[in-house]
Amino acid sequence: MQLILDHVSHIYDAHTPHARGALRDVSLQIGEGSFIGLIGHTGSGKSTLIQHLNGLLKPTEGSVYADGKDIADHEYDRRRLRGKVGLVFQYPEHQLFEADVFKDVCFGPKNLGLPEKEVELRAYEALMQVGLEQEVYNQSPFDLSGGQKRRVAIAGVLAMQPEVLILDEPTAGLDPGGSREILSLIASLQKERGMTVLLVSHSMEDVAAYADRIIVMNEGSVFMDGTPAEVFAQADALREIGLNVPAATEVCRRLYEAGLRVRPDVTTAEEACEEILCCFSR
């Protein structure tokens, strides 16, 4: 699935005194099979942006095209679109409601109007993919741990078999162990299913470790868009809008400035380690 945002602007409460702009003239192409990190401050327009991708919000100006079709068109089937562009919101507590985990995961595919057998098959498959043990399937989703709830929420969207998976801060509130597990789960899902993943995150380190493209939002506009190396090479510009680069990048940059022969555009601890060792062995 190819998603194109064409000069999209969004104003909340347009035509009222409360009007405030959330997106300003955003043009983006979200392509096939990539792992995209979306970063920016609270209020930079990230949430507004992702809600345009599955038609939960309509642009005040501009258009969103999914595979060439304008999703704001009256006859466009936005419900089907939501099956193709899966969106997992930040708190699983906002979507879990069924008596047991399995039924909850069935909710999405059922809404797509699939036959019961297919619904159950998909739910089963999705639960397997997020790595939940079978004994959890008939438990109440409210009795699970934070990490498990998160998995159920992801499975609930995966069961619709989306081609694009958007996750809004999927690690919020999890401990570091839980975060690591969820992130590597997402990375493996992306590889195995060839999905496009859009990960909204506040952690530069996480984004650097997993994404092959980073979009930086600031004040409703796209501030940067490139590979992690390209984006984090502009540490000063990022700092100006109050964002940091990963510590590993910062270390290498400073070493480079101090005259050491290390590449300043590394983005992960492992890369930095290799670079520094290389430099010291020379």
Partner: peptide, 11 residues
């Protein structure tokens, strides 16, 4: 927020 989360699941 809940409404949107469920709409994202086709509700």
């Amino acid at each position: 927020k809940i409404r949107k989360a469920q709409m994202a699941r086709g509700a």
